[in-house]
Structure formats: C-alpha cells, structure tokens
Design a binder for these strands. Structure first.
Length: 423
RNA sequence: GGAGACUUGUCCGAGUGGUUGAAGGAGCAAGCCUGGAAAGUUUGUAUACGCGCAAGUGUAUCGAGGGUUCGAAUCCCUCAGUCUCCGCCA
C-alpha cells in the first residue's frame, strides 16, 4: 500500500510510474487524494466536537464534585446534541476511511527506476545467463517419465489421496526432497539467516499484511471452519512476524529463512504448463526474507540475487537471471529478479526463484517500522526470495543429470542424500 | 470441551467512574558529578491522525470490537489470548 501523503505530493510522477507497470486505473490516484482530503475535513470536524464534549464533561465533573448539581444538569443537556452529531460524523468518517482504504489497496507498488518497460514476460531483461545449454540425446526423458521409471515420485497416487498437483515422493525421491531442504537451510544459516519454523495456516490479517488479500484471495486454500488460509509461501507468516513492530535501526537488516510447504490453488492453469512437477498445488520451498533500511534495500536485493545464483551454481544447474519488466512484476514488488533453470529434456526455462524488493509497500500495510536514535519511526523495506522452490529444481536435476546408468545427484547434495545416483 | 483467575507503556507494576496518556520502579538517552567509570543526581523517554513555519496544540488508543454514561483503564456484552484445576489426547 502506498502512502497517501506521497500520492498527494507526487501525483504526476506516480501516474507515470504506474503506467510503466501497465496499470490501467490511474484515476484511482486522484480518487485516493480526494478521499484523503475528505477524510481530513471530517476528522477535523469530529475532533472539534469531541473536544467540546470533553471540555463539558470536565466542567460537569468539577460541578458535581462541588455539589452544584443543578448547574451540572444544565451542561448535561448541552451534550446531548453534541453526542448525536459526533456519532453521525464518526460513521461517515469510518465509511470514508474504508473507501480510502479500498482505493489504496487497488493501487500497485511503483516500479523502481531500473525496471525495464514492457508488458509481457517476453520483455523481461536477461541480465545473466550461465552459458551454453546442455544437450541431451534424443532418447532423453522428461522428468515425469523419469519419476515413473525410477519410482521416486508418484503423481497418480497423489491423485488418489488428494487430487492432481499433490504428488507422493517415495524412496530416493523423498530423500532427495529432504536433502534439498537441508542443503538450502544450511546455506541460508551460513549466510546469516535465522531459521524460523512458522505456522502454515495464517489468519486473514496476515494475508492482508503481505498483500495476498484481498488481491489473490482465490489463489489460497481457505479453511472455512476456522477462517484460516493455507500459506502460498513462507513469506506470509515470516514477514508478518514483524507486523506492528518497531525495530531498532542497529538491528537491521533482519534476515530470516524458513522451510515450509506451500499451497496454491492455481486456478486457471492448465495444459502442459502443469505437467509433472512444473506446477503443483502443494510444494516445498525455502524462503529468505530480509527487513532492511530503505537506503540499503537495493544493495540487499543484489546480495540476495547473488546468494540464489550461488545455490544454482553449486547445484550445477544452467540458469539465467531476468529483471522483470514493469508489466510482468507482481502487484507489491518494486523490482524483481526471476531465476530460471533450464530443464533440458523439456527444453524449457523453469522459474525457481523470484527475488523482490517491496520497498515500504508491504511495510506500510504491516506497520513494520524502524527507529533511528530518537527519530520518529519510519517504514522499513521488506525483501524476499525463494532459495529455493524444490519441484522445478528436482525436475531440472532429474532431466539434466540423466544417464544410461541413472540420475546423477549433484556433488554438493550427496552428503545430504547419502547416495549419488538414482537407479 | 467444562470451571475459575487474569490481559495496563520497552519491562515490572499501581490504578473499580471525574485534569489518568496513565502513580511508582527498572531500563534507555542527555546533563551534572568523576582523572575515567560505578554510585549519586537532574531532565527526558508511546503511537497514529489533524492543525501550526515552529514552540505547541486537538483527537484517538490501558488485549480486540461493541454498549452504558455528561464522563470509562475502571461498569456491561461479544471475541481472542494467558494461567490454574478437571476432562481428553499425539
């Protein structure tokens, strides 16, 4: 959520920048400013009334104390009309604030200056590519066939238990999952991230805090009986840890990592995009989150991008890094890098990480602030990235590392898996 | 799940209807003191939204939301959480 004060003072440049994000409803900006002015006016009036009432109440108090009941009752009569009016104003104020809020939550974050122009994924800027793509012999299999061949991931069984998109990992498949999770968590710990294990069900307030609600309500599984949502990413619970918190500037940056299963309804996805591990309803992911001083957040974004790249290097997977164009970025992001690995049998780039700086967009909703010395608290910047999402990493490992003898496990994982080949 | 007790500022803790945004203490910050430090001492120490160039000032906030009242941290209702006892159970 953007700050109304900022919208008011920078209307023109805000509109320019929103256009870069391919946002159509730019009239919302001026609507927000107008609503905010209205809000101020109403609040002024209401404050005035309440102040009068408070004064009268105080006077009545002293009169009653000194036994002047009559005079007190006279003043009491005066408060009746005041009270009624202020009640009325209060409800118009509530309504106005709600309207304002409804407008604000529809306005996406502003793109950072480095964000390229563009509306579709084709216009994303490739900022790094790890070189020549691996070529597999013609008889190479896509990962879903490898899964069946070695009986390590069973999609059919998942359908029986739950439905499509909920695979069952078996034997070395299950162990590979566990190995990846441990590898990622250990690397994150080495890089200074504090591991947390959050709930994977969250309340609506947390959903609002990080922006999944009201925007993407239909993308989350909802547990109606208790009004909880299954998390689509660990970002939600982990970032919400800091909701309504004021952090000391010297404690920044805050670095957290978490492994969680993630749940996404993926309504509207279909066809070959959802084949095998490419797109699941439930998957495992290790997430990294940082809360940083506004002046350092872009430096931190680069650091996080490099960190994720390091993981991919260690796994010896071919990858490229994209700087997303304005139109392809998420609602809340100011700048995003996507990391894609090449899955050689499918001959496809698969997104395995998305590293974003949200600047103060989430922090404003979360009321996540920091304080420098005795200054007033200011909104912090939030960043997060996948490090990494497992299924597509697994897909790429299976496909790229297949040999006639079996699937070779990347060197760095062997100490976690306890085996070096799936055969 | 049943019964009871409780939920106050960074922390501890007072406060059962009338200058209480909130006593007192601790912590923290600044000044004094000291060769330096400790101790001592003085002052300051919430957040949000308005108005104001500023000093300042108005309003709201004592778990959350509603209600009673001229006036609520204090009374009533609902919800959430914590603790104790019972029940159940990984």
């Amino acid at each position: 959520m953007l700050l109304t004060g900022y919208l008011r003072d920078n209307q023109e440049s805000v509109i320019e920048r929103l256009k870069k994000k391919n946002f159509k409803q730019i009239e919302l900006v001026s609507q927000a400013v107008e609503k905010d002015n209205e809000r101020k006016k109403i609040q002024n009036q209401l404050d005035e009334l309440l102040a009068q009432n408070n004064k009268l109440a105080e006077q009545i108090g002293t009169l009653m104390k000194s036994g002047l009941k009559e005079e007190g009752n006279v003043l009491k009569a005066e408060t009746v009309a005041l009270k009624e009016k202020s009640k009325e104003l209060q409800s118009t104020l509530d309504e106005c604030e709600k309207d304002l809020h409804d407008i604000l939550v529809q306005i996406p974050n502003l793109p950072y200056e480095l964000v390229p122009h563009g509306t579709t994924a084709e216009e994303n800027e490739v900022v790094f590519s790890s070189g020549a793509l691996p070529e597999l012999p013609a008889e190479a299999l896509p990962h879903w066939e490898l899964c069946a061949k070695y009986d390590i991931i069973d999609f059919e069984l998942g359908v029986k238990l739950t439905g499509a998109g909920f695979p069952v990992y078996k034997g070395k498949g299950a162990k590979l999952q566990r190995a990846l999770i441990n590898f990622f968590l250990e690397k994150a710990a080495e890089a200074g991230y504090l591991e947390v294990q959050p709930p994977i069900l969250v309340n609506a307030q947390s959903g609002y805090g990080t922006g999944q609600l009201p925007d993407k309500e239909g993308q989350m599984y909802y547990v109606g009986m208790d009004e909880f949502y299954l998390i689509p990413t660990a970002e939600v619970p982990v970032t919400n840890i800091y909701r309504d918190v004021i952090i000391k500037a010297e404690d920044l940056p805050i670095k957290n990592t978490a492994y969680t299963p993630c749940f996404r309804r993926e309504a509207g996805s279909y066809g070959k995009d959802v084949r095998g591990l490419n797109r699941l309803h439930q998957f495992d992911k290790v997430e990294i989150v940082q809360i940083q001083h506004p002046e350092k957040s872009y430096q931190t974004l680069e650091e996080m991008r490099e960190y994720v790249a390091g993981l991919l290097n260690e796994l010896q997977l071919p990858y490229r890094t994209l700087r997303l164009c304005g139109g392809d970025m998420s609602f809340a992001s100011a700048m995003t890098y996507d990391m894609e690995v090449y899955s050689a049998a499918q001959k496809k780039w698969l997104e395995v990480s998305s590293v974003s700086n949200f600047e103060s967009f989430q922090a404003n909703r979360l009321k996540l602030r920091f304080r420098e010395g005795n200054n007033k608290p200011a909104l912090a910047h939030t960043l997060n990235g996948s490090a990494l999402a497992l299924p597509r990493i697994v897909a790429a490992i299976l496909e790229n590392n297949q040999t006639p003898q079996g699937i070779m496990i990347p060197e760095v994982l062997v100490k976690y898996t306890g085996f070096s080949i799936i055969n």
